[in-house]
């Protein structure tokens, strides 16, 4: 018996150390794994353009170092692209902001009564299924070919996930918590602000994450069609395509996906912060 106790303690300590070691391995893997994939992609890319492609067809897929040299390291090219990127980013951000407000408000309204949900929801779904490329020219006829139309495209493209995620969050409140609020005579507004919205917050943030990528895509699509005002990155992509300037084209692609990534990461960080606040497991003394 006396020999067993220290053994148990030692085993527990080893288990603990193993646990923290495993956690460390996991977080290292989290950082390293994407870089490993990146290295593999770059290797394959290099191999394709240097070995598989003849010199006269290399313009189809210029090697990574050419993309970096002509796209990122030439100040003229880069500043043109950054200006376009900024213009597109502004459209995406304004569109996303409008979409967030509109999507959350619509979901809240739909959550107030079944008949409202039933009457609006089919159109929210339709929003997702209409071919946006066909609608874009129409928007041009109606609203002109400048900023407001570009923003409208962003909103149309990014609204749906915001509505559905918010609605899902609002509806997934535990029945017992609803009973609790009923018991104490909560008003609709108290129920909304003290129970439903805080409960839905993680789901709403998931909606932000999905919508942020879509808003950037919407802004680039709009750039293709609406050519008044500052040229967005989408307009530049179109020009590079016509000029067969593949290096710049690829740089522009990388830069625009970077904007989507940055937005996604910010909302992801926000979501993690919310989760951490709720499930904090500090030792309860």
């Amino acid at each position: 018996m006396t020999t067993l106790a220290p053994e148990g303690v030692r085993l527990a300590a080893v288990g603990l150390r193993k646990g923290t070691a495993r956690a460390a391995t996991r977080s290292t893997a989290r950082v390293l794994a994407p870089f490993a994939v990146l290295a593999a992609v770059l290797g394959l890319w290099s191999f394709t353009s240097h070995v598989l492609l003849d010199a006269d067809r290399r313009f189809l897929l210029p090697p990574p170092e050419d993309v970096v040299r002509k796209g990122f390291l030439q100040p003229d090219n880069l500043s043109e692209m950054l200006a376009g990127l900024w213009s597109t980013t502004q459209v995406a951000l304004v569109g996303l902001a409008i979409s967030i407000v509109l999507g959350v408000v619509l979901a809240i309204v739909m959550n107030q009564a079944r008949w409202v949900e039933y009457s609006i929801y089919p159109y929210a779904v339709a929003l997702q299924t209409i071919p946006i490329l066909a609608v874009v020219p129409l928007l041009g006829f109606w609203f002109g070919f400048d900023f407001s139309s570009r923003v409208t495209v962003c909103v149309l493209v990014s609204l749906f996930p915001l509505i559905t995620n918010t609605l899902y969050g609002l509806k997934s409140v535990d029945a017992g918590q609803h009973d609790l609020f009923t018991l104490y005579g909560a008003s609709r507004l108290q129920r909304l602000f003290s129970l439903e919205l805080p409960h839905a917050l993680p789901a709403i943030i998931t909606g932000f994450k999905i919508a942020s990528g879509l808003a950037v895509i919407g802004a680039i699509v709009a750039d293709f069609f609406f050519r008044q005002g500052d040229p967005g990155i989408g307009r530049l992509i179109d020009i590079y395509r016509q000029r067969l300037a593949t290096e710049q084209l690829m740089t522009a692609l990388l830069l625009s996906s970077l904007v989507g990534l940055l937005l996604f990461w910010s909302f992801d960080a926000l979501g993690r912060a919310v989760d951490r606040r709720r499930s904090a497991r500090r030792a309860a003394h």
Binding site: G176, D179, Y184, G185, L195, R277
Partner: peptide, 25 residues
């Protein structure tokens, strides 16, 4: 009414959870 689950609001502190009925009233 004490429910089968504690039905606490996970985003609120113990203090704010206990204050809830008085807050709603």
């Amino acid at each position: 009414y004490v429910f089968q689950d504690a039905t606490l609001l996970p985003w609120q502190s113990v203090q704010r959870n206990v204050e809830l009925p008085a807050e709603l009233a």
